[in-house]
Amino acid sequence: MAQDQDDFDRRLRRLEDIHEINNLMGMHEYLHAAGRNGEEFEKLFAKDAPGLTFEPEDWGVFEGAETVKGCYVDGAPPEVPGLMTEHAATTPVIEIAEDGLTAKGVWISPGHETFPMPDGPPIAHWSWGRYGIDFVKEGGAWKFWHFHIYTTFRTPYHQSWVESSIDRPPYFPEPGQLMEGMTPPSRPVTFNQPYHVDTAQQPAPAPPVPYRTFDETWSYTDQPT
């Protein structure tokens, strides 16, 4: 009977964990769109956990709380009129480790970004990507631990991603070019593959599979095998 109750409690805890992780991902999207990266970093990132990493698109891997903050907070675009970004989190695959200490998830993200331009009106873009994220429980709450953003495409609203892959818009920064104020990355990009007409798409990020403890799995900011 006690074993039945333990099993019930464990399954209930897994359902609660899955919901909390979905909410965490939703909070990331809302706070980022509102330009509240600093607040998001303080509340939602595992600042005290060993091995905190952040790998956004083609910028490289940022390791440790100070460096991640130097990228995600100090390198965030300034909140100015004409800026608007929204990244939706859809199609989740979430696995909670059997030991309840870590979790893994992937999402597909359709989005849009509107950037103010120095010489003219803001330009609207479609921006689609994917997320591969490891989570860790810190102080009883789920936090972002290894956060990887993969580019699918970014293209002006009126131009297909096929065209933009062939004829890159001239105002786009060079791949890996740091934003003003951004801390340099700790190590190079592990994987990022924006659409290109002559490149076969690699299956990344890999959706997580059930696992017992993090030792058995990989990090989303490790070099994919």
């Binding site: 979905n22 909410n23 939703g26 939706a88 989190a89 849009h112």
Partner: peptide, 24 residues
């Protein structure tokens, strides 16, 4: 109007709930 990016909270008393979504 697809629904994405949900944040849902149920009141502890189970009588009300709140939610927000993005819709592309």
């Amino acid at each position: 109007h697809p629904l994405t990016t949900s944040i849902i909270e149920i009141a502890d008393d189970g009588k009300t709930a709140k939610g927000m979504w993005y819709s592309p």
